[in-house]
């Protein structure tokens, strides 16, 4: 694998994480439990889809075959998507969505903190920009985990279950392979062991404050980075890609 091939794969993974999670959050539009949260979730979706546009555009440039952000978002099939399995998990109830958001935002916040130092100028600039946005996402989801955990008996029990159910998808965020190793060594990518350490600390701290118990499961699901997904991604794509699949090349 060449450095360019690894960089392309890296951008696709990052871009797909934001695109798919952004799409999931956008599904809350008009369905939020209260107006403020409806607006919050769609705001976060907007940030994530915007970040994904930067990454997929850059992926297209690195690839050099003339594919743009729209080609990559709308014309790839399920097996070509490289998002982490966590991001495609269903919204469930509000607690499920906040648990998913908290796990992901805590990872992404510390990931971007490292990526700011990337030797790749585009990735470094992307990280500098996105970090400001993700800081708000992490604060928002942390506050909800605390509020639900330290709330009523029912909210405590529900958010605890959400955190347990999604726990198995957190390991994949930190798994390394040829792509991540090569780019970390080159100073382009991020050392995931450092991110994992900070993530562990933050999750532990927030759950303690929320009077919740840290899940203990050790088995971790994986496959997203290789294009092997849970059943949910296909349904997301049929919704997300419908228009371009039906009317290829259609412009807004």
């Amino acid at each position: 694998m060449t450095k360019e091939e690894a960089l392309l794969e890296y951008c696709i993974r990052l871009g797909d994480d934001s695109l798919i999670l952004g799409h999931r959050l956008s599904e809350w539009c008009g369905h939020g439990p209260i107006l403020e949260e409806d607006i919050a979730m769609t705001n976060i979706a907007l940030d994530l889809v915007g970040q994904s546009r930067t990454l997929l555009t850059y992926a297209g440039e690195v690839e050099g075959k003339g594919r743009g952000e729209d080609d990559l978002a709308y014309m790839r099939s399920e097996r070509e998507f490289k998002n982490a399995l966590l991001t495609e998990q269903p919204n469930g109830h509000f607690g499920d969505t906040m648990a998913r958001q908290f796990y992901f935002s805590a990872y992404y916040y510390f990931f971007l903190q490292e990526l700011v130092n990337s030797k790749d100028e585009t990735l470094a600039a992307f990280a500098e920009k996105s970090l400001k946005e993700v800081t708000y996402h992490l604060r928002h989801s942390s506050e909800w985990v605390i509020r639900l955990g330290d709330g009523t008996e029912e909210s405590h029990q529900k958010i605890q279950e959400s955190l347990e159910n999604l726990w198995r998808y957190t390991g994949e965020l930190f798994m390394t392979d040829e792509v991540s190793d090569m780019l970390a060594k080159e100073g382009i990518g991020v050392d995931l062991t450092q991110v994992k350490q900070k993530w562990d600390e933050r999750v532990k701290q927030v759950l303690e404050q929320a009077t919740l118990t840290l899940p203990e499961g050790t088995w971790m699901a994986e496959g997203g980075r290789k294009g092997v997904h849970t059943e949910h991604l296909g349904y997301i794509l049929s919704d997300l890609q419908y228009l371009q699949r039906s009317y290829p090349g259609l412009k807004w």
Binding site: L48, G50, K129, S130, E133
Partner: peptide, 8 residues
């Protein structure tokens, strides 16, 4: 430069 990444 954009204000926010996704600013429409």
């Amino acid at each position: 430069t954009p204000t926010y990444s996704g600013c429409p």
